[in-house]
Design a protein around this nucleic acid. Structure first.
Length: 366
DNA sequence: TAAGCGTGGCA
DNA sequence: TTGCCAAGCTT
């Protein structure tokens, strides 16, 4: 059966009307809420975003409140979501919107000028908040179209992406951009999934070329696969007079502006205990001794797989005061202070372990 | 154009 | 356990 555009649109929109998940930003499609949700959803799955979205909106209910937020308050609300530049850019956008009178532009071209708003987010906000006729192209749409149209080249290749963007625009029913785009992404998330797609329940099963050919599992064609680099890291919980040393990371690079415990990479042939003493000296000029193993935490970030060795360290009595070489600010903090500050996920896990360590808690009292 | 930028879930 | 994956943007 030939591809029928009207049928494709009708079945997709009917399916979405019946199957759309109840999400907080789908209540009224208020532009601020749509923008926050779309930025949170960059490279992040729906289920993970929803609780962050609720907390974020409670703290920062509008552009004005977000524009006025402090750095720790902002990053703390984002802690655990990753890609923290998103939070900073979202605040920059809020400030630009406030400066421009308080309203978000409605056209994709103007939205695209805002910090942290790329081609996807500009089209998504224009379509979902303002129902402008823009077609989004995200990983879900790429996957759906690569199957429906049987695309036999890697979908991440720029030329293929341009082609898929044009196809998405062709499929878009004029005047229905809000529902159409969400329907394509929702279908990708719930039915046309990367693994174990539910083709028997798919509203587009009659329109799907890859399904007809029996090669759904060969679509989309993957691109170059990323290699993960194992990394051994040692970090120190440096305690003095009931307080722990923490430092704020530099404004550029990974975990920019977040707080952390000092430490760094364990060199080949070096023990984690020796590395933590060396790294703390290099980063802070603090002299510490007798590192005592606290925890071993495994986590990953971007393309690294990290084995994080954590030690409790004492400052030697004749140690000089801290001088920072890998951070912009430091603090001797009480355990209870750490909750209002943003830490990388691995260090947050360490804080959780610290709270379970009775002897450490006794050391931190008072 | 390619690499940097997080994180947790899942098979 | 390990590899793969997710509603991308910036430089």
């Amino acid at each position: 059966m030939p591809f029928d555009l009207a049928r494709f649109r009708e079945r997709l929109l009917d399916w979405f009307a019946a199957s759309a998940r109840d999400l907080p930003w789908r209540r009224d499609y208020a532009p601020y809420r749509v923008l926050v949700s779309e930025v949170m959803l960059q490279q992040t799955q729906m289920e993970r975003v929803v609780p962050y979205f609720e907390r974020f909106l409670a703290r920062f209910p509008d552009f004005d409140r977000l524009a006025a937020a402090g750095e720790d308050e902002l990053l703390s609300a984002w802690e655990g979501l990753g890609y923290y530049a998103r939070a900073r850019n979202l605040q920059k956008t809020a400030r630009a919107v406030v400066a421009a009178g308080g309203r978000l532009p409605e056209e994709a071209g103007a939205l695209r000028e805002l910090p942290g708003v790329g081609p996807y987010t500009a089209a998504a906000v224009a379509a979902i908040a303002f129902n402008r006729d823009e077609a989004v192209l995200d990983a879900n749409v790429e996957r759906v179209l690569s199957r429906v149209l049987d695309v036999d080249e890697p979908v991440k290749a720029p030329a293929v992406r341009r082609q898929l963007a044009a196809e998405a625009a062709r499929l878009l029913p004029p005047g229905r951009a809000r529902d159409f785009n969400q329907a394509m992404m929702e279908l990708g998330a719930l039915v046309c999934t990367a693994r174990s797609p539910r083709c028997a329940n798919c509203p587009l099963r009659e329109d799907c070329e890859a399904l007809h050919l029996g090669i759904v599992n060969e679509r989309p064609v993957p691109g170059k696969r990323v290699t993960f680099t194992p990394l051994v890291v040692a970090s120190g919980v440096v305690v003095r007079a009931g307080r722990v040393f923490i430092q704020r990371r530099l404004p550029q690079g990974v975990w920019a502006g977040l707080w952390e415990f000092p430490g760094g990479r364990v060199e080949p042939g070096e023990s984690p205990a020796a590395a933590v003493v060396r790294e703390i000296g290099e980063e802070t000029e603090l002299a510490v001794a007798a590192p005592e193993h606290l925890a071993l935490i495994r986590h990953g970030y971007t393309t690294y797989r990290v084995e994080l060795h954590c030690f409790l360290c004492a400052v030697v009595p004749e140690s000089p005061p801290p001088v920072l070489h890998a951070a912009q600010e430091y603090r001797w903090a009480r355990l209870s202070e750490l909750d209002g500050l943003a830490f990388p996920a691995g260090h947050r896990k360490l804080i959780d372990r610290m709270r379970q360590d009775i002897r450490l808690c006794e050391l931190m009292e008072g």
